[in-house]
C-alpha cells in the first residue's frame, strides 16, 4: 500500500529524516512513534505530498507520488492541529470535502456525525467550537472519506478518553474494510492494543520496525511503555 525508498528530507543543515525504507501492507494499522523532533510529522507529510523529499521515493498504491496528485483521492488525513477557517461551519467543510472528492467518495458522513455526537455543532461557526470538538470535526471529515489509506497525526491529543475509545473502534472498523491506517503519536495508550506494526523513529532514522510482540521480545519487556523506553538507550536492533 505504501512503500518508501531511502526517503530523506533535510531542513537547512539538519536531516529531519534520513534513508527511510519501509513498506506497509494493505489492512495494516501502523503506529509511528518516536520522541519530539524524531521526524514523525515530516515522514507523514512526505507521504501526503506536503513535504517535498530531498531525495528518495514514495509509492502509494503502486503509484509514484512525485508524478501526480491523483493518488490523494484514496487518502484521508487528520492533521495534528485542526485549524479550520473560523467563519465556516462543519457543514460547509463537509460540502467542501464532497465537492473535492465527489459524493460517491463521501458516503458515511451521517454515521460519523452520530458516532462523534457532532449533531448540535454542525451549523455553528468553527470559532465557536472548543479544541476537542474541532478535533472531532477533523476526525469526522477524515473518516467520512471512503479511502484506502488513512493518515492520522496525533489523533487523540485533545480528545477525552471516551472519544479516544470511539476513535480506536472506528480505526479498527476501517481496517476490517481493508484500509491501511498510519497513526503518528507519542501517546502510548493511543497505539496500545491497536497497531499491527510499529515504526520507531529516532533522530530521523528507523530504530525499529516490526510487530509489537516482536518489540517486547527483543527488548525483553512486558509493557509497551518500558519496551519503547529501552529502545531509546539500546544500540543496534
Amino acid at each position: 500500500m505504501v512503500r518508501t525508498e531511502n526517503l530523506s528530507k533535510r531542513y537547512k543543515r539538519k536531516w529531519a529524516i534520513k534513508d527511510i525504507t519501509l513498506e506497509f501492507k494493505e489492512g495494516e494499522i501502523i503506529g509511528i512513534m518516536g520522541p519530539n523532533g524524531s521526524g514523525k510529522t515530516t515522514f507523514i507529510k512526505s507521504i501526503l505530498g506536503l513535504v517535498i523529499p530531498t531525495y528518495g521515493k514514495i509509492w502509494v498504491n503502486g503509484v509514484d507520488i512525485g508524478k501526480s496528485t491523483h493518488y490523494k483521492r484514496d487518502i484521508g488525513y487528520m492533521a495534528q492541529i485542526p485549524r479550520f477557517p473560523e467563519n465556516l461551519t462543519p457543514t460547509d467543510l463537509l460540502r467542501l470535502v464532497r465537492d473535492i472528492y465527489g459524493d460517491g467518495k463521501v458516503k458515511d458522513y451521517e454515521y460519523y456525525i452520530e458516532k462523534l455526537s457532532l449533531n448540535e455543532f454542525m451549523n455553528m461557526p468553527i470559532k465557536a467550537l472548543s479544541g476537542g470538538t474541532k478535533q472531532k470535526v477533523s476526525a469526522f471529515l477524515c473518516f467520512s472519506i471512503d479511502a484506502k489509506l488513512y493518515i492520522l497525526d496525533e489523533p487523540t491529543a485533545s480528545l477525552d478518553p471516551y472519544t479516544s475509545l470511539i476513535l480506536k473502534e472506528e480505526i479498527l472498523r476501517k481496517k476490517e474494510k481493508g484500509a491501511t491506517v498510519i497513526i503518528s503519536t507519542h501517546i502510548i495508550p493511543t497505539v496500545e492494543g491497536l497497531v499491527d506494526k510499529l515504526v520507531y523513529l529516532l533522530e530521523g532514522k528507523v530504530k525499529f520496525f516490526g510487530s509489537v510482540s516482536r518489540l517486547k521480545e527483543i527488548t525483553s519487556q512486558n509493557s509497551l511503555e518500558r519496551a519503547i523506553a529501552k529502545l531509546n538507550h539500546v544500540e543496534g536492533f
Binding site: 501526503l48 496528485t69 491523483h70 490523494k72 488525513y77 473535492i100
Partner: peptide, 9 residues
C-alpha cells in the same frame, strides 16, 4: 495544509 492533502493541485 489540509487542502493540499486533498487531491488538488
Amino acid at each position: 495544509e489540509l487542502l493540499l492533502s486533498y487531491p488538488l493541485k
